[in-house]
Write a protein that binds this DNA or RNA. Structure first.
Lengths: 152, 152
DNA sequence: CCGAAATAGGATGTCAATGTCCTGTTTTTG
DNA sequence: CAAAAACAGGACATTGACATCCTATTTCGG
């Protein structure tokens, strides 16, 4: 009956849904290509099971994962971990929208951004670049001793 | 009666409130140090007047602007445009929260972030850095021919 | 073919962000 | 001092993100 968020947002920059999708996909990558049951992923990644199911359906529609019903079914990556970047996941769930034109739609100037929105767009670009630079496979190879998702 | 957002979010990364705060502060910087009335700022920046008033109150509490009541009063910057960065404004309204520890609070490892959250934090860092690198004064000096906020 | 295993998806609930409105309080000017 | 100017702030409305639950529907194994 209590519908307050189960977990505090990691950062206001990322939606809870992005966080959940990333956890799930990293979990899948660690076990790729074996399919995993949604309930198991939810437990391991500490994501609400019913909500994770919705998130995974979204990822399926974007071609990130495959869902298989029935005994022995479950969720698996649609591509190899070396073919998926963090950006692919983020964009599938909550696309990074670069600023293409001034949000104040004055027609007194062309498509050129004012200085403020240009700077904001540059910040978005740097984030986009950071996310594009790492594949799931590289995440798993990370020398960091803490395994992804902090489980073991 | 219609309470749908007046303007589409510029990017899911930035809240509407951050966008409004930045527009208002840039407007103030262009006219610094003369105080401006909230209603005038709202009109020039295309922000709902009553909501802008709330945003400005928040900025006052964070020491970004000064509010003066009565005839001849209005809103003015609490510091020179060369003393305020975009990051100062963003953090006053919707602080960028860097990821300090794994959001899955397993105690099986220390404060070290797993590879996924380390990458996410690096993306936040790059955005933070981008925002810290520009002061309001530098925004106004921008060689870009479109004046900030696209008005004139 | 039957039953168990899984996902599919609709209906519904809650809350914070966004936005409006109205009345109070402070300050300045004449 | 009186009146107008301007912010202060509480009450309230709406919406989308987050979340749950329950009932299909599909698929595999024996």
């Amino acid at each position: 009956m209590d519908h307050r968020p189960l977990f505090r947002l990691v950062s206001f920059m990322f939606s809870q849904t992005v966080e959940y999708a990333l956890r799930a996909v990293v979990h899948l990558a660690m076990r790729s290509p074996a399919p995993q049951k949604t309930a198991k992923i939810a437990e391991a990644t500490q994501v609400p099971p019913a909500y994770l199911a919705k998130v995974l359906q979204g990822l399926k529609e974007k071609g990130i994962v495959k869902l298989q019903r029935g005994i022995g079914g479950g969720v698996s990556l649609a591509h190899g971990p070396d073919q998926l970047t963090i950006l692919d996941i983020v964009n599938a769930v909550d696309p990074i929208q670069r600023i293409k034109h001034c949000p104040l739609d004055l027609k007194t100037h062309g498509a050129r951004l004012c200085a403020l929105h240009f700077r904001m767009d540059q910040a978005l670009l740097s984030m986009e670049t950071a996310f594009r630079s790492t594949t799931l496979a590289e995440l798993l190879e990370d020398p960091n001793p803490s395994v992804p998702l902090c489980d073991h």
